[in-house]
Design a protein around this nucleic acid. Sequence first.
RNA 1: GCGCCCGUAGCUCAACCGGACAGAGCAUCGGAUUUCUAAUCCGGCGGUUGCAGGUUCGAGUCCUGCCGGGCGCGCCA
Length: 583
Amino acid sequence: MKTLVTKLVQNALASLPELADAAAGLAVETAIERTRDPAHGDFATNVAMRLAKSVGTNPRELAARIVAAFPASPEVDKLDIAGPGFINIYLSAAALHAEIKAILEQGNCYGRQPAKDSPRVLLEFVSANPTGPLHVGHGRHGAYGATVGNLLEAAGYDVDREYYVNDAGRQMDILGLSVWLRWLEAHGTQFDFPGAGYRGEYIREIAAQIDTRGAAVVDRGALLRDIPADAPDGDKEAHIGALIERAKELLGAQLFNHIRQQSLESIRQDIEQDLAEFGVIFDRWYSEQSLETTGRIDAALAVLRDRDMLYEKDGATWFRAEQFGDEKDRVVVRENGVKTYFASDIAYHFDKRERGYDYLIDILGSDHHGYAPRVRAGLAAMGYDASSLEVKLMQFVALYRNGEKLSMSTRSGEFVTLRALREEVGNDAARLFYVMRSNDQHLDFDLELAKSRSNDNPVYYIQYAFARIASVFRQLAEKGLSHDDSRGRDNLDLLRESQEKALCSALGRYPEVVLLAANNRAPQHLVHYLRELANDFHSYYNAHAFIVDDPALRDARLTLISATRVVIGNGLGILGVSAPEKM
RNA sequence: GCGCCCGUAGCUCAACCGGACAGAGCAUCGGAUUUCUAAUCCGGCGGUUGCAGGUUCGAGUCCUGCCGGGCGCGCCA
C-alpha cells in the first residue's frame, strides 16, 4: 500500500520541473506515513512542508501545486490539504479490496519481501556460558533474537543464527571442579563446598551421570591439605584456584579434562533442548575452544601483527584499540602467556566475516555495552568496515517473587530457570511477554503476577481473535453452509460498515509493520499491531453478524475475516506464538 | 570521575530517520449479548512527556546543562 502511494507522490513531484532540484535529495518514502486519525485519510505526506523552504514558497501553496499535479488513479478517492501543509490521501475502496485479495492469494507469504542476495546476515544471540541452565534473562535474549531473526527473514534477508559457546577459560575449570566435588560428596567425602563454586542442584545431577572411570575417591585430608581458606576467613578466588590445581593433580590433567568436557557438553545440550522447546533454533553452535584448537586466534593475531596493530608492553601483547575509537588499548596476550577473552572475540568476529557474512548482529546483555567499540576496533584493524557489526543491547530482566527482587547469580544457584518460567506461564505467553517491550527497556518480571494473571496476558487476546474466526467457519459448516470465496471477493463493495473499513485498512498495514519491526529490530511494533488488529476484529465481531442470510454479504464478510485470519496467523508465526483453532 | 542506556496517565508500557488534539493495557466508574466463544465490545475518569534552556513552521523525539535510576569502566570470562 505504502509502495503504491509512494509511487503516486513521486510521479506528482516528477511532473513539477521547478521542484526537481529540491526533491532530488528527498527520500519520498520517508515523507509518507499512515495517519493516526482516520479523519486525515489513510496516508499523509509532508513533502510540501519539507520542500517549501528550498523552493521559496509557503507549504500550503506548494501542497496545492503538488495536489494539482497528482496523477489520476483508481486507487485514490480524494486528496486534502490540511494543517500547515500536509497532503492527506484517501484511498479508494477498490484499493483496499485489492489488498484483501492479495492477502488471500499470497497466504503465508503475505507480508514477506522478496529474497535479497545481500547482505548475508549473521545473528548471534543468547550465547550464555555453559555453566548452568538458562535463566529468565536468557529467555528474553532467546525470544528477542529468534523473533528478530524471523523478522529479518520476512524482510528478505538471508540470516543465520549462531550461539557462541564460551567453553574455554577458568569458568570451565570451576565447572569441572564443582562436578568433581559433588561426585566426591556423593561418595562420602565431607567438606564445605567452595563459595565460588557452582552450587546449583544440576551439578549433583551431572556428577551422578557422567563417566568418572579412573577417578579415585579421596578423603578430606588429601583434598584440603595446604588449601588456603575460603571466604569469609580467606579469599574465595585463591581457595577455588588451589582446589582446581588439586583436582588436576589428583585426577591427572586428562581425566580432569574429561570430566570438565562432559559437564559442559551436558549443560550445553540442556540449553539447546530448552531453547528448542521454546521455539528458539540455532543454525550453528560455535565453540570458543575450537577457535584455539584450529589456530584461529593465532591467525587473527597474526593478521593484526602484520598490520602493525600489536605491540609489547610490560611483558604483555597489546592491541591498538584506541586508534579505532576504543577508550584505550587492550591486552590480547597476558604477561603469563595466556590469551585474553578479548583475543578470542576478535578472532571470532574476524572468522564471522571470513565465513562470508557481511553484516553481523550481536544481541548482548546491557552490561556488555563497553564491548562493542572494542570488537569494532578489532574488525576495523583487520580491514573490515566497523559498521558491519551492529550490537543490540538487552536490558535486564528483574525477577520479583512476592514483591521481592530475586538474586540472579548463577553460582549461588538462586535463580529461576527459563524452563520453570515456561512451565508456569506457557511458551506462548512467555514469547510474547518477552518481546512486548523495547530491548533497551528494563523488564520487571513478577513471577506471582505472571502466574496468577496469565489469563490477562495479551497473547490470549490475539489468539482469541484467531480462534474466533475458526469458530465462525465451524458454525457455518454446522448450519450446512459454505463459504463461496469467489463470490465474497466479487462483493467486497458491500462492506460499508465503519468496522469493516477499519479492518480492511488495518490488514493492509501488515507488510509495513513487518518492515518497520525488522528494520528497527523492534518486535514490539508487531505485537502492538496484532493487538490493534485483534481489537478491530473483536469490535467488528461484536457489532455485526457474519453469518447473515444474504449470501453475497455473508460471503464478503467471510472473505474479510478469512484475510484477517491469514494476517494474524502470519504475525503470530513471526513471533513464535501458536495460533490455536480453538481456545 | 568518565562512558552507554533509561525517565511519558495511579501501575506496566506505545508513539514509524521531528508532524496534526501524546496512545494502549491494567486499575477504577458506567453500559452492552434471547444472535457466530463475555478470554469480547462500547463509553467515562486519568498527562506541564523528570527540570531548565536552545534549534525548528512544528520537539516526547534533536542539542546543552542539571536531577533521578540502571549498567559498565581488569593482564576476569
